[in-house]
């Protein structure tokens, strides 16, 4: 079980960071599964892959 306080925090932080729409649900599931001892490494990878990055290598 994830308390609604945690769910609300996930929602707020995702909005604050302007994350893609499907990301919030996946991050919420990641945390819920971590709390339920129900986590696979690939879950972490899935969530990481959804995080947009700056196009690498255009410094200087």
């Amino acid at each position: 079980m994830t308390h609604e306080a945690v769910e609300a925090a996930v929602r707020d932080i995702c909005r604050e960071d302007r994350m893609p729409s499907d990301y919030e649900a996946r991050l919420g599931a990641l945390i819920a599964n971590a709390m339920r001892n129900n986590l696979d490494k690939s879950d972490i990878e899935d969530v990481l892959r959804l995080i947009p990055t700056d196009e690498a290598g255009h410094e200087d």
Partner: peptide, 29 residues
């Protein structure tokens, strides 16, 4: 190299989010 770099950026983002979620949840609770 750029995948690896990208992954580092993504990790930093996720870690920061998790930390803020943890902090905000704690405050609410």
């Amino acid at each position: 190299v750029s995948d690896s770099f990208k992954l580092s950026q993504q990790r930093d983002m996720l870690l920061s989010q998790l930390q803020r979620i943890e902090q905000q949840s704690l405050e609410t609770l």
